[in-house]
C-alpha cells in the first residue's frame, strides 16, 4: 500500500538465521529486498552519489607501472624497448594438478560425557589394547582421556584415548586417594623422526634401515609404577577388591546370546 510506512523489524537478524528455502529451481521464498529488510542489510548500502564523491576525493594511490623501458644493446635494436614489468609465467600446466586437501578440522576440546568420571572403568574399543578394561584417570588438555590398566593387571600403560572409542561402564573406583603427578599431553607425543627415503646416492640403504623398537624411558617407567601402586591400593580398598582386580585383568568379550545393544554396562 502506498503511503504506509513499511514495518522494519525491531531487531535485525543475522543472514544465516534468515530461512530462505528454495521453492523451485532458482526461486527463493523471500525476495532480495525482504531478506535485506530482515537482516538490516540496507544500513550498509552506500548512497551512489556519495560513493562517487568519495571516490573522486580519495587520495590517488601510486600503482607500479605495467610496462617499463629497458635499454637494449646492439646497433639495430632501437636502443630501448618497452617490456612488461612483471614477466609472464614461463610454464603453464596443461593438466590441473591435485592440491592436497586442506586440513579443515581443528582439534576441539570436548568435555567427557557424564558417564565418564575419574575412576570409571572403561572398555577400550580400538587400538592395540582393544577389549581391555581400564581405569579412567582424568581428561587431558586436548580433551583426550587419560587411562591406565593399571599396567600391572592388564599391561595397559598410561595412555590417551578419545572418548568415542570407549564404553563407559557403571563401575566406578574411588580414586580420590590417588595423587596423580602432573601429566601433560606432550608426554605422549612421540618425537618425529624425519623419514629417510633410503636413497642410495645419499649413502642410505633401503633395506638396512630398521625401525627402532619403542622402549619406555626410566622416567616413564617410574611414573607408571607410581600410578599403579596408588591405583592398586585404591582398588584393594574398594568393596569386592579381589574380584575387581580379576575383572580388570580379564578383557571384555561377547558370548553367544549376548547382544551389545541390550547389555547394560
Amino acid at each position: 500500500m502506498a503511503g504506509t510506512k513499511r514495518k522494519t523489524p525491531a531487531k535485525t537478524l543475522k543472514r544465516k538465521d534468515v530461512k530462505n528455502p528454495l521453492i523451485a529451481k532458482g526461486v527463493r521464498q523471500l525476495s532480495k529486498a525482504k531478506v535485506m529488510r530482515l537482516t538490516g542489510g540496507w544500513k550498509f548500502i552506500k548512497d551512489p552519489v556519495e560513493a562517487a564523491k568519495a571516490a573522486m576525493n580519495a587520495p590517488v594511490t601510486k600503482t607500479s607501472p605495467k610496462m617499463i623501458t629497458k635499454p637494449i644493446g646492439g646497433p639495430k635494436n632501437g636502443k630501448e624497448r618497452k617490456v612488461l614489468a612483471k614477466k609472464p609465467r614461463r610454464f603453464y600446466a596443461t593438466e590441473d594438478s591435485l592440491k592436497p586437501a586442506k586440513k579443515s578440522r581443528k582439534r576441539v576440546y570436548r568435555a567427557a560425557r557424564a558417564s565418564i568420571t575419574p575412576g570409571t572403568v572403561l572398555i577400550l574399543l580400538t587400538g592395540r589394547h582393544r577389549g581391555r578394561r581400564v581405569v579412567y584417570l582424568k581428561q587431558l588438555e586436548s580433551g583426550l582421556l587419560l587411562v591406565t590398566g593399571p599396567y600391572k593387571l592388564n599391561s595397559c600403560p598410561l595412555r590417551r584415548i578419545h572418548q568415542s572409542f570407549v564404553i563407559a561402564t557403571s563401575t566406578k573406583i574411588d580414586i580420590s586417594s590417588v595423587k596423580l603427578p602432573e601429566i601433560k599431553e606432550a608426554l605422549f607425543v612421540k618425537p618425529k623422526v624425519p623419514r629417510s627415503r633410503g636413497n642410495t646416492s645419499k649413502g642410505g640403504d633401503l633395506f638396512e634401515q630398521k625401525k627402532a623398537d619403542y622402549t619406555p624411558s626410566d622416567e616413564r617407567k617410574k611414573l607408571q609404577s607410581d600410578v599403579d601402586k596408588q591405583l592398586l591400593a585404591a582398588i584393594a580398598k574398594s568393596a569386592d577388591g579381589e574380584i575387581l582386580k580379576n575383572y580388570l585383568k580379564k578383557p571384555f568379550g561377547l558370548n553367544s546370546r549376548m547382544f551389545p545393544h541390550a547389555l547394560k554396562f
Partner: peptide
C-alpha cells in the same frame, strides 16, 4: 540377569 552390569556379570562368572 538382564539388569546386571558388566562388573556384576563378571562377578557371577568369578564366583
Amino acid at each position: 540377569r538382564e539388569n546386571l552390569n558388566d562388573f556384576q556379570r563378571h562377578k557371577v562368572l568369578y564366583l
